[in-house]
């Protein structure tokens, strides 16, 4: 008999009091041992989804199972098997780092000696061994994230939910967290991470679901998602015509687009500042043809670059917007308690 997947979500919906529909019927499955990402802008429904899976928030409809257990049927059993680090780091500033971890362990049923041993091991893992006896209130932002993260690992959960684990961190701390997460995943921990950072999703996740306005708009490995955009991107930057001193002739856009669309390997063209971008299956093979076609059409080309699509392009492809333009409905300050109090947040 097969073990159930780490996370299985079907038709999940969440409507907050006041009618805001934060999650609008999503389905996804995370296999055991997988590093899975939910990628989307603020307000997309990522945090709400994680909170439902972590039993912190009741769903409106659908079904959510963690390690085969329905989150509604047995929330305590779900909690016992998962680790959660939310975006709003919930720490006790007056507590010392090691004491905080030991208490976490005790709350998950570890014995005193075992909790102490595990706390020391985890403090070592995240480079906080030297400050374990300092109060958490004196920690930097990066240190707070790390202690919060390892707090979620004290009981060695099989599934780890991380809500924007590196938001607000400096690049060095971010990189350190990424390395720890890689190590954990290599040890067999299933990780479900939410992020609004394309580079993070690309660097860490084996599979991704892109979420926007509470719906999943695409799902696959980063490579599959990028391939779904339509191949490589060849960008031609226009050079100045001999008689002109500043930039491209406006007519170049139309001329270049017409010339490129005539090429059989070009799937799509998009205007770019002072240039044009063509989507092709194989950028290396298409580049000489594109250069030749533009030259024949009389469009001067200053530079030609071939790139593979990024996840930014994937998001743009599926939503028509860039992720950084869509930060409108901030869910960053939402606290679970706020939901219980009937505060309408997402």
């Amino acid at each position: 008999m097969h073990a159930p997947p780490a996370v299985r979500v079907r038709g999940l919906e969440k409507t907050y009091p006041g009618g805001v529909r934060a999650v609008d019927g999503i389905d996804f499955t995370v296999q055991r041992g997988e590093f899975f990402g939910l990628l989307g802008p603020n307000g997309a429904g990522k945090t709400t989804t994680i909170k439902i899976l972590a039993t912190l928030l009741p769903k409106t409809a659908g079904r959510a199972d963690v390690a085969g257990i329905d989150v509604d049927a047995d929330p305590r059993a779900v909690r016992a098997g998962i680790g959660v680090a939310m975006q709003e780091v919930g720490l006790d500033d007056l507590s010392k780092g090691r004491d905080f971890l030991v208490l976490q362990g005790r709350l998950y049923g570890l014995g005193r000696a075992e909790a102490g041993r595990r706390a020391d091991e985890l403090l070592e893992l995240v480079g906080l061994a030297g400050v374990g006896r300092r109060r958490i209130g004196s920690y930097s932002g990066g240190m707070r994230r790390r202690i919060d993260l390892v707090g979620a690992l004290m009981h060695q959960p099989a599934v780890l939910f991380l809500d924007e684990p590196t938001t607000g961190l400096d690049p060095q701390s971010r990189l350190a967290i990424w390395e720890y997460l890689d190590k954990l995943n290599e040890r067999g921990v299933t990780i479900l991470l939410t992020t609004q950072h394309m580079d993070e999703a690309d660097r860490l996740c084996q599979r991704l679901a892109i979420i926007d306005h509470g719906r999943l708009v695409a799902e696959g490995t980063p490579a599959e998602l990028k391939a779904g955009v339509g191949g490589d991107l060849v960008r031609a930057a226009f050079g100045p015509r001999p008689a002109e001193a500043d930039g491209a002739d406006p007519a170049d856009d139309d001329t270049a687009a017409a010339a490129l669309r005539a090429l059989p390997m070009v799937r799509q063209t998009d205007a770019a500042p002072d240039g044009i971008t063509a989507t092709v299956a194989d950028g290396g093979a298409a580049a000489p043809e594109i250069l030749r076609a533009l030259h024949a059409a009389g469009v001067p080309v200053a530079a030609l670059t071939v790139t593979s699509p990024s996840l930014d392009d994937v998001f743009l492809h599926h939503t028509g917007r860039q992720i950084r333009d869509t930060d409108a409905d901030a869910d960053t300050d939402a606290r679970v308690w706020g939901q219980w109090m009937g505060v309408n947040r997402q």
Binding site: L56, A80, D93, Y108, R335, V336
Partner: peptide, 16 residues
Amino acid sequence: TDIMSGYVDKLLLSPV
């Protein structure tokens, strides 16, 4: 203070 810091959420996330 514990509610606002998110610490109560942390406690509620545990299986206690």
